[in-house]
Amino acid sequence: MPTGVAMRDARRQLFDAAERVLREGGPSALTSRAVTAEAGCAKGVLHRHFADFDDFLAELVEDRATGVAARAASLRAAAGTGTVAGNVADALDDLFRTVAVAVVGLVAGRDELRSRLRRRWPTGVPLLTEAVSALAAYLAAERNLGRVAPTADVEAVSAALVGAGHLLYADRTGAPPAVGALERIVAAVAASAFR
Rank of each mutant, 00 (worst) to 15 (best):
T129L: 10
A181K: 13
T151S: 08
G180E: 15
L182D: 01
P177G: 06
N144H: 12
V148Q: 08
E130P: 05
A159N: 07
G146K: 12
E142K: 03
P126I: 06
L145I: 09
L139V: 05
L139F: 03
E142M: 06
P177T: 13
L139Y: 02
G180C: 09
L128V: 00
V162C: 01
A140E: 15
L145A: 11
A170P: 06
A152M: 14
A160V: 09
R147N: 09
D171C: 10
Y169S: 00
A181M: 08
D153G: 01
E155G: 07
A170I: 10
Y138L: 02
L127M: 12
E155V: 13
Y169F: 15
A164T: 07
L168K: 10
A170K: 09
L127Y: 00
A136Q: 05
P176Y: 03
A178M: 08
A156K: 15
A149I: 03
V154F: 00
P150D: 12
A131K: 07
A159C: 10
P176R: 13
A160M: 14
T173H: 09
R143K: 15
S133D: 08
N144F: 11
A175C: 01
A175W: 11
S133T: 13
E142V: 03
G165Y: 01
A175Q: 06
A137K: 11
E142I: 05
T129I: 04
L139S: 04
A141M: 12
A178Y: 03
A160I: 00
A136T: 02
A136Y: 02
A170H: 07
A141F: 08
L167D: 14
R147P: 09
V179W: 12
V154E: 07
A175S: 14
E155H: 07
A156D: 01
A140S: 14
L127K: 00
Y169C: 10
L167E: 15
A137N: 03
L127C: 02
A141Y: 05
T173F: 02
R143S: 10
N144A: 15
H166Y: 15
P150M: 06
P126E: 00
L182Y: 09
V157P: 00
G174S: 07
A137R: 14
R143W: 09
H166N: 09
L161N: 04
A149Q: 07
L127A: 04
L161R: 06
A141T: 06
D171S: 13
A131Y: 03
H166K: 08
L168P: 09
S158V: 04
R143E: 04
V157F: 01
L167Q: 15
G163I: 13
R172K: 15
N144T: 11
L161H: 00
D153I: 14
G165N: 10
P126V: 01
V148H: 01
N144Y: 11
P126R: 04
A134K: 10
A140K: 09
H166W: 11
A152R: 05
T173E: 09
L135C: 01
Y138S: 05
A137Y: 05
E130W: 02
R172L: 13
E130C: 06
L127H: 04
R143V: 10
A159L: 13
G146M: 00
A131H: 00
